[in-house]
Write a protein that binds this DNA or RNA. Sequence first.
DNA 1: TTGTAAGCGTTATCAA
DNA 2: TTGATAACGCTTACAA
Lengths: 341, 341
Amino acid sequence: MKRKTQVNIYDVAKELGVSISTVSRALNDNPKISEKTKKRVKKAADKLGFKKNILASGLMTNKTKIIGVIVPYINREFFAQAINSIEMTAFDLGYKVMICQSADSLERERINIDTLISSRVDGIIMSLSLETNDWSHLQRAIDMGIPIVFFDRVCYDIEHSTKIMVDNFSAAYRATSHLIEKGHKRIGHIGGFMKIKIFQERFNGYKKALNDNNIPLDETIVKETHLTKDDCNKAVKDILDLENPPSAVFCANNLTAITAIFYAQSIGMNVPGDLAVIGFSVDPFATLMKPSLTAVEQPSKEMGKLATERLVEELNGLAEEKATIYGKIILDTKLVVRESS
Amino acid sequence: MKRKTQVNIYDVAKELGVSISTVSRALNDNPKISEKTKKRVKKAADKLGFKKNILASGLMTNKTKIIGVIVPYINREFFAQAINSIEMTAFDLGYKVMICQSADSLERERINIDTLISSRVDGIIMSLSLETNDWSHLQRAIDMGIPIVFFDRVCYDIEHSTKIMVDNFSAAYRATSHLIEKGHKRIGHIGGFMKIKIFQERFNGYKKALNDNNIPLDETIVKETHLTKDDCNKAVKDILDLENPPSAVFCANNLTAITAIFYAQSIGMNVPGDLAVIGFSVDPFATLMKPSLTAVEQPSKEMGKLATERLVEELNGLAEEKATIYGKIILDTKLVVRESS
DNA sequence: TTGTAAGCGTTATCAA
DNA sequence: TTGATAACGCTTACAA
């Protein structure tokens, strides 16, 4: 079955005996067209099954109404929530989303950026891959007039861009302090990849809290992970199998926290009695599980929504040639204390 | 900052003193172009920062290399897994994905379809919304030459399309039989929206298993839900708060199963002692929780991968004007027995 | 092996 | 308020 050549404005124009410009204008609600013809045109278009070819209009207008999105993995809870919110918000604002996964690979991130540029997306919302240590591909997009809004794993080294994040340092400081207030003196930390700013900051907040309470940092109960299942498992075991395991652990993400709780239980430790656990981010299971998980709640959906709204504002500003003020937007986290601590 | 007009093949051609067709051909690896010029062209293109405008090329070729995807919600575990796999597979095959959420609304699904048509996606992969009881919008896409591959919540009423699913009836039959073998005589069922085929089939499999074992169906321990959190909570409570609650429950999705387990525990029931629970679908949490969850595992990633591969095959077939054989692809489920039963 | 020119389906710029 | 026509940036016969 050969792809049928589709109905275009010429067909509609012919049907009505008007010019294609009239059809185009009517379909775009141009004020210079009378209501009567608008109605006629729209009706005929519907009848013929006309669907505007966005490739053609995008070619002319230099706008596609597509937002490119790059995240490490779609199926990580935090990103799934953020993307859900991005798509919903984009939909409301009349945008579509083209979603790419970097799989935490710089190479893939580069390819994704190139693809999005080639697709002439109007703007990009992204969270950096773990490997990203060079920003030239991002700068290239911005130089081509495609604004980028970063969220969560933001890029500090790119100036003309909005960055949406939480105060990871303070959140970690608060979480650790909470454990200290509960009387813990030996507190471990299972973090993310330390080359990434947000995980550094979480680590720094943890260190500062210890320091402010005169608790020495013990490197043997601090682990770095790439947030994969295997990594988390290993880190948890490394720490809990020690002869002298910590009595509490602050985890830089929820997968680790949940893994820690179940592993602790499986080796006969009581949570929170023998081990208090704090996670990071939102997870539907945090409230369901036993014990329920104390966690620093990151507003994933709000971040997605805000990123989208912000990007669209920038896009509109660009169109009106208004100068954009770029900057950081820091959202509040909540330390939600539940049973695991 | 005005959007800079971007580098095009004219710029590249001028730089080298060749024609635009040579540039175009070289960039597309046309065999009629000498290796030498190909190299020169590609180098110059790189140097000038040329990025092919896919809008323009798509307009000519009638191909965008975009796959449209419509799912109810991106942030439901099953769909997040499927989409992860769809994007990965599409990436490998040189396709991009435009992802839409129907939010289980027919109205939104219609809008999404229209948007995807306007975007001239090459094909569509989708899972129906709960409300979808009319297929004209889907038929329209197919009639326009945009093939649709359905997965999970497939549409039986559209003939020229591939459908990828699991045998829900048999899976449910097996799950229920497993509970019966364990000695249960009073088995509840918390299902999905019964207007949807897959949930009907799960219910039917459950009924058949009861029937084959001479267990009468008790409507008071059968509940229908829309798979939302609130719905699941209510259904679980309705059943477990009965004076005469079931000793086992087969849930049509995992959220319900997990909710059931935790609620049962919270009211002092022992799982699986007082209540055995079986879920449906894959969830990272199923293995982690205590007790771990017995579940019918749906191969979400395989479904996504297969759907994408299948769609691309159809697309290639279309290009070569080969007739496509459409049909159902039924993937196996696994009943993974864990602690909750 | 390369160049010329037509055309894809829109929007935009003039005129009328 | 409408119409003719030139773009937009590419691919692709057809010529050379």
